[in-house]
Nucleic acid binder design. Sequence first.
DNA 1: CCCATAAATTGACATCCATCGATGCATTCG
DNA 2: CGAATGCATCGATGGATGTCAATTTATGGG
Lengths: 133, 133
Amino acid sequence: MGDTIQMSFIEIQPIAASLRDDAVIAETDTACSPPARRDAIGAEAADELARSLKALADPARLRLVSMVAAHVDAEACVCDLTEPLGLSQPTVSHHLKVLVEAGLLTRDKRGTWAYYRLVPGALDSLAALLAAV
Amino acid sequence: MGDTIQMSFIEIQPIAASLRDDAVIAETDTACSPPARRDAIGAEAADELARSLKALADPARLRLVSMVAAHVDAEACVCDLTEPLGLSQPTVSHHLKVLVEAGLLTRDKRGTWAYYRLVPGALDSLAALLAAV
DNA sequence: CCCATAAATTGACATCCATCGATGCATTCG
DNA sequence: CGAATGCATCGATGGATGTCAATTTATGGG
């Protein structure tokens, strides 16, 4: 099913366009500082971005993404990742699931093996959103 | 004290240069996939990056950073941030502390008020590191 | 068929974390 | 000096999270 790929990839894009949709300008113009210069990001946009960042805010998952990217064709199966990571197979599977659900990796099961691939542009989109906060 | 500023800013920079210092190439050349094309990031680099990302992987903290950036001179005091965020003052103080310790904000207490400011370049450095994973 | 292998799922456990109320600590003002 | 204000710290609590052993679910080979 390519559904997961499409859905999560589409999810990321609109954030950039609507980063400040539900933004709220600080109305409390007390004496301590001047009012806002521009809008801050909205609560919902912050929720979305935080959920994506949470997926990457883990050493094991960062290494997994990097290891997948380091492979030829940016593709790797679980058996290649478990040992160098030093974690148990269920734990690696768990982390990979989180990354897939976050729209950063895709899973492709061929025969006995499950191959994971980078979603092209996902990391760069996230980085761009981060820099635009 | 500008110590916090200097220390944490210096912390971020070397990561980019040593992203793959302690990297380990996947040696397990089993049948399921070809060997690595390049090194993945190292365990320590992943730890460092994950710690920085964790600081931002929270809706409240993302909004705080954005709200501080939205202010004139990119400066804001706690009293400006508490109400629009909808969180209690101790919670906001807690989040701000996390952001300062992560090297993203600086704290400057003037009189009764505490002014928070963006560390210039910190967000962009993080975004660059993220895209380079 | 039955066994071996790869990977996902489950259940359990320890730890971390976001949040709040209460309290403490400066600083300012009357 | 004493009251008030802004902010940090403390302690508690409910919920999320990383990890593993055990089990389950395919898939492939003899």
